[in-house]
């Protein structure tokens, strides 16, 4: 069973924002809502590192646990999605999320929060696959086309990997072995928990 994960290799990421605009492009995300963004640490200083961040689709998702209306669900592939028709825009998932992934467009004249929006792993949402409804609320459903998230597929340096956790960690491990350096797998631990014994998880080096 495929278990979908994201991994950003900070040794590779050059902060080109390809992943960010790929997401905008594929999901027609409006100005002001950023499902994915790139964070740079030590900007302009030796040792500068960048990492691309979006919803990590946590194994034990804090957003899900705190949602008062239980609009989140985990798909069989490990993707964390939510039903926008239920979302009340309360913002609790944002506070719970270790990655700041949930986003809220402003709605109405009084600056009320709109329904939460976040990365869907390009898997649409709880509507008929490829329907107008699904696209308008959640964006494109690439998984249902047998494809992976566009941000990862288009990353300029293949720093951002997305897909079946085993495949992704294999790719990363081979690369890390070759260069003799792991690179920070930023967020992997907090999203997916400690590597389980016996499973081949890439090493986390800080």
């Amino acid at each position: 069973m495929a278990r979908m994960k994201f991994l950003c290799d900070s040794e590779r990421c050059i902060e080109c924002n390809g992943c960010v605009t790929a997401c905008k492009n594929e999901n027609e995300v409006p100005w002001g809502v950023n499902r994915r963004r790139v964070v740079t640490l030590g900007d302009g200083l030796p040792g500068e590192k960048s990492v691309s961040v979006a919803c990590m689709h946590c194994s034990d998702a804090p957003c899900m646990a705190v949602c008062p209306v239980d609009c989140f669900y985990h798909t069989d592939e490990g993707v964390v999605l939510h039903d926008k028709d239920m979302c009340i825009g309360c913002g609790y998932c944002f506070y719970a999320c270790p990655f700041g992934a949930p986003q809220y467009p402003q709605s109405g004249a009084f600056g009320q929060r709109g329904k939460m929006d976040k990365c869907t792993f390009c898997a649409g949402g709880p509507e008929v696959d490829h329907s107008e409804e699904e696209f308008k609320k959640y964006g494109r459903n690439r998984l249902a086309e047998g494809k992976l998230p566009l941000c990862a597929e288009m990353c300029s340096t293949k720093a951002l990997l997305g897909g079946d956790g085993d495949v992704v960690s294999d790719i990363f491990r081979d690369r890390a072995l070759k260069r003799g350096k792991g690179g920070e797998m930023w967020g992997w631990g907090s999203a997916y928990g400690k590597p389980e014994p016996g499973t081949k998880k890439p090493e986390v080096k800080s």
């Binding site: 989140f72 798909t75 069989d76 999605l81 039903d83 709880p126 509507e127 696959d129 459903n141």
Partner: peptide
């Protein structure tokens, strides 16, 4: 437990 609409398999 999730109380929204059901989603299909990809």
């Amino acid at each position: 437990s999730y109380s929204g609409k059901t989603d299909g398999k990809p």
